[in-house]
Design a binder for these strands. Structure first.
Lengths: 296, 296
DNA sequence: GAGAGATTGTACCGATTGTCTAATTTGATA
DNA sequence: TATCAAATTAGACAATCGGTACAATCTCTC
């Protein structure tokens, strides 16, 4: 069951690499992975959901391998950092991730956009924290600027250099070049004192920012409690209570609430006669849209 | 007639800004600009063609205004350059150009992709030439690297700063910050001597670079003439001669040879018994790959 | 072997791009 | 002013796509 779903993801990934995301129709995926349409929509609620599932597996794998490079090593060793960057760029290349990203970045699906935005935010944060470890706490005020610039230098130089030179060492050369540049920039900005982005912004951007807010937690708790009421006496309604608790836990405790899961659970709950079209459910949806998805 | 077409472009532009390119259907454009579907397809062969027409007008306007800022001014004055960058970024912003670019960059339309690629290449070249004027001829070997890095720094910092701070001065601050950084980088790389991109690459990338080369034209002419030989006496073989002439014209006269067309014509020609697997055909293919596609 | 859940195949819906055509309007010329 | 070619219109139409619905079938577990 689980491996079958993974198999579909894998086959779709292959098609996306070959033809691109938009150009791959669902029928292509069905044919290529040998499943029926009904099965597909049993696994994923849409083509975008499949893409999110694909991204998630790739992200996790990348994070795992990237972190393994650090085990037992000195976090301030810049050579380790270079290896990490090379690993990530190499994975991007072999999975055609940059192309997929760009293709999807401006999609019409709000959920997908959010997902990508969170992904790029996370890698910016990771970069910032690595910079702190490498260049020292005293440079902190400038390191978010520098992380952002490093991303820009790296991506642009890699793109242009790859066009110019077909070399298997492109990634290696560009990473080293970019690291040399950013090291000098860090020296320079910490002398001139110029700064654009305060590192505190990371907390504000973080999905946790809102969640650490006391008012947020209380409001959510109140809403969920209210919705659970009709079920608390009825023993047969354990499932609904569990679903509501799940939403609460996911929003409060999970670093990155899986919005697609929450949406799915909301859908399930909305099918419940006792919740369908109630004011409480609408309030919950509006609340999530407002404070978690930052919409409306 | 002409102004009517321009009117459609203008209306579509408005819709693209409001809803995005993908999300705007042709029907939307028809309704909003009050024309019939037939008229639309009389003006543009597709929605992508319309987008290219829109980009073209915006490009021209941007180039015009940007160059006007230089009239009667010192080209090495960095303040003028800053004004030029601000102008371009401001136009990007007000026209939602960056979003449109990204949305379209990975489209499936080869022509559209080529168009965008040429656009970004042109602005890289412009930036390089401005840097030469500002930072001096002696820095030339490093200025293509720096132009590329400047683009990266600028776009990433602007994106992140705009997310962080809703300020009308965002563009102003980010441009100045980026210029300060790149100025120091130029000093630094010209001391360390590190280089990735040779400025000569600009000529190789340029559509005109190779084509203005006398040797290129003569060689191509010789190859094509050679291939036409078997057909010149036979009146029934007009088509093959026309196809060969087409390739020649397309490569020599067209600013951006439509490679997909040429490939298609080559395929057709290769099916011709008199050309199939001949040394001449192979020479032509190799020639095109080498001098036009910059491959192998 | 009975039954629940997963899977299949297929028909169907609505939206979209793009083609085609017959009828009508416009505009320049004689 | 009359004429006629070109431009424009309205809409039917085909093809494709994402997604829904559902009855029939298969698989696995108790």
């Amino acid at each position: 069951m689980k491996d079958r779903k993974q198999h579909v993801i894998k086959m779709a990934h292959q098609l996306f690499i070959d033809k691109g995301f938009q150009a791959t129709s669902i029928q292509d995926i069905l044919d290529y992975s040998g499943i029926a349409k009904g099965t597909f929509y049993n696994y994923f609620s849409s083509k975008n959901e499949l893409l999110i599932a694909l991204f998630t597996t790739l992200y996790k794998q990348m994070e795992k391998e990237r972190n393994e490079l650090l085990i037992g090593q000195d976090p301030s060793d810049i050579e380790i950092f270079i290896k990490q960057m090379e690993l990530q760029l190499e994975m991007n290349r072999s999975n055609n991730l940059t192309a997929l990203f760009e293709e999807v970045y401006v999609s019409n699906d709000e959920e997908l956009k959010q997902f990508i935005k969170i992904g790029s935010f996370k890698s910016l944060r990771w970069l910032y924290e690595r910079f702190v470890a490498i260049f020292g706490e005293d440079k902190k005020p400038y390191l978010l600027d520098c992380a952002s610039m490093f991303m820009g230098i790296l991506s642009h130089m890699l793109k242009n250099y790859s066009i110019a030179v077909k070399s298997p060492h492109a990634i290696h050369l560009v990473v080293r070049y970019s690291v040399n540049r950013i090291a000098k920039i860090i020296e320079e900005v910490s002398q001139s004192g110029e700064q654009l982005l305060e590192p505190e912004l990371l907390d504000a951007w973080s999905p946790n920012g809102k969640k650490n807010n006391q008012a947020f937690q209380q409001a959510l708790h109140r809403i969920i409690l209210n919705l659970k009421k009709p079920f608390t006496q009825n023993i047969g309604s354990k499932k609904q209570v569990e679903l509501l608790d799940f939403i609460y836990e996911e929003l409060i405790n999970r670093q990155e609430p899986r919005l697609y899961l929450i949406d799915s659970v909301l859908d399930t709950l909305k099918k419940e006669p006792q919740l369908k079209r109630t004011a409480g459910m609408q309030k919950l949806e509006k609340f999530i849209n407002e404070y978690v998805k930052n919409e409306k």
